[in-house]
Computed example of a mutant assay.
Amino acid sequence: MGPLALIIAGIAAWLWWTGKLRRITGRDGMAIGMGVIGAMLLAKGKPLIGLAPMIMTGVYALWRLRTPTITRPADPVSLDITEARAILGVDENADPDAIRAAHRRLISLTHPDRGGTEALARKVNAARDVLLRHYTEKQVPPERD
């Protein structure tokens, strides 16, 4: 009973660690719990009681695999240069190293893994991209004929 539960918990932890369970819903968690309970009851020698949660978990897993998940399209973030500077907190004369340093400082606070939101992290990344692109365009000398 114990080793089987540890194996199932280990698989769930591995799936979460690799990111396959990153978007787990409440229903998914309940199905995993029902599967663990059913496996423990089957391991205890109670097949009539343990078979029902295992069947329900299997049916839910098949339903979940057939039902496509709804994904929202990534909304492109369009910023002008003044907004990008305001977001990163850099001045007009900032070089790429200062832009990257400001980005690292800000993204460490706003990253979704650290409690921020995906939208905010996307905006910070877009601000960095806009400023770096503007800096490289500003540095390219015009072509002469």
Rank of each mutant, 00 (worst) to 15 (best):
W16M: 07
Y60R: 04
Y135Q: 14
I32S: 07
R104H: 13
A102P: 02
R105H: 13
R122G: 05
V36E: 14
E83L: 03
G45M: 00
T71F: 10
G89W: 01
L48D: 06
L88I: 07
M54K: 02
N125S: 11
T18G: 09
K46I: 03
A31F: 00
L4K: 11
L48H: 12
I8L: 15
A9F: 06
G35L: 09
T71I: 04
A84C: 11
M34L: 14
D113Y: 05
A121H: 07
A9H: 10
T25Q: 15
Y135W: 15
I8D: 13
L106I: 10
G10I: 04
R105K: 14
I32E: 00
I8Q: 13
G29K: 04
R23D: 06
R23V: 02
G38S: 02
L48I: 04
M1A: 11
D80V: 02
D95P: 04
V36F: 15
A101L: 04
I55L: 12
P141H: 07
G116L: 01
R23N: 10
P3H: 12
I8K: 06
R122W: 00
I107N: 10
A84L: 06
G10S: 10
G26I: 04
A94L: 01
D129S: 06
A98H: 02
M34R: 07
A61G: 13
M56E: 09
L65Q: 12
H134C: 01
A74N: 09
K20T: 03
R133D: 13
G33P: 11
T117Q: 01
T136M: 07
Y60H: 12
D113F: 05
I81F: 10
A84V: 00
E137A: 14
R104D: 13
T117Y: 04
R23W: 08
I7R: 09
R144W: 02
R66H: 12
L21S: 09
L120C: 12
W63G: 03
P142D: 10
A52V: 15
P53V: 01
L131C: 14
A43N: 06
E118Y: 08
I55R: 06
D145A: 08
R72P: 03
K46F: 13
I107Y: 00
I37E: 03
R100H: 02
V124R: 01
T110E: 06
A31G: 05
R100N: 09
S108R: 05
T82N: 10
N125C: 08
S78L: 11
R114P: 03
D95Q: 11
A121M: 06
E92A: 10
M40H: 02
G19S: 11
L15W: 04
R85I: 01
A31N: 03
K138T: 12
L21G: 03
A86G: 07
A119D: 15
M1L: 12
A119I: 11
P47E: 02
I37T: 09
V59A: 14
R22D: 14
I8Y: 14
K138F: 11
L51S: 15
I87A: 08
V124K: 00
T67L: 08
R144K: 11
T18Y: 08
E137Q: 14
I37N: 05
P73C: 05
W14G: 12
G89M: 07
K46Y: 13
D97Q: 11
P53D: 01
T71E: 15
T57Y: 13
R105I: 01
L88A: 09
